[in-house]
């Protein structure tokens, strides 16, 4: 210990000749006054350091930080509101666009339907005309065919009768063929 370096002169009521402590150094009355003086000075110095400089400064820093945090939170709240507004506007635009699209689709559909209807009607009319024409042709053909059958039957009947060697009256044959064809 450093006290060993103390010479004989250090010996007092509390320190022996060898520099060792006699009893509790804490209870040595010779040293109390010195300690108290320096303690009071130290406490006053620390008090002024703290109360004049350190504590107001730290309080200001803490207040500033609190202010900054509050401001930032307010700004964040503001931005959040703006974002929410923007989202609303976006949603509204989207809904509008959708409605418009729906409208356009409905319009287009109606137009197409009308066109289709018209085309169908036209086609139907054409088909009906064609069908009537065809029917008429078929009727004509049928009539023609009947005539030809009659002709062929008469001729065939005449020839058959002639071949059998009987002189047949043309008018009789014709009426006979006619009656057969009717029956």
């Amino acid at each position: 210990m450093a006290t060993d370096t103390l010479g004989e002169g250090a010996a007092s009521a509390c320190v022996d000749a060898g520099g060792g402590a006699i009893g509790l150094p804490q209870l040595c009355p010779d040293w109390m006054g010195n300690q108290i003086v320096w303690l009071v000075i130290a406490l006053i110095v620390i008090f002024f350091i703290l109360s004049r400089i350190a504590l107001p400064r730290i309080a200001a820093v803490l207040a500033e930080r609190q202010g900054t945090i509050t401001n930032d939170l307010a700004a964040a709240e503001d931005l959040k509101e703006k974002a929410s507004d923007a989202e609303d506007a976006y949603n509204k635009a989207l809904a509008d666009a959708r409605a418009q699209a729906q409208e356009i689709i409905a319009e287009a559909k109606a137009e197409i339907n009308a066109e289709l209807e018209e085309a169908t009607q036209k086609a139907d009319a054409e088909i009906a005309a064609k069908a009537a024409e065809g029917e008429k042709a078929i009727a004509d053909i049928r009539a023609n065919a009947m005539e030809s059958v009659k002709e062929v039957a008469k001729d065939t009947a005449k020839e058959l009768v002639a071949a059998m060697g009987v002189k047949a009256d043309a008018r009789t044959v014709t009426s006979a063929v006619n009656s057969r064809l009717k029956g």
Binding site: M1, T3, L6, C14, A21, P25, Q26, N34, Q35
Partner: peptide, 10 residues
């Protein structure tokens, strides 16, 4: 052993 010497004021 000088456990108390550290408390000496000098």
């Amino acid at each position: 052993f000088h456990p108390m010497d550290q408390f000496i004021i000098k």
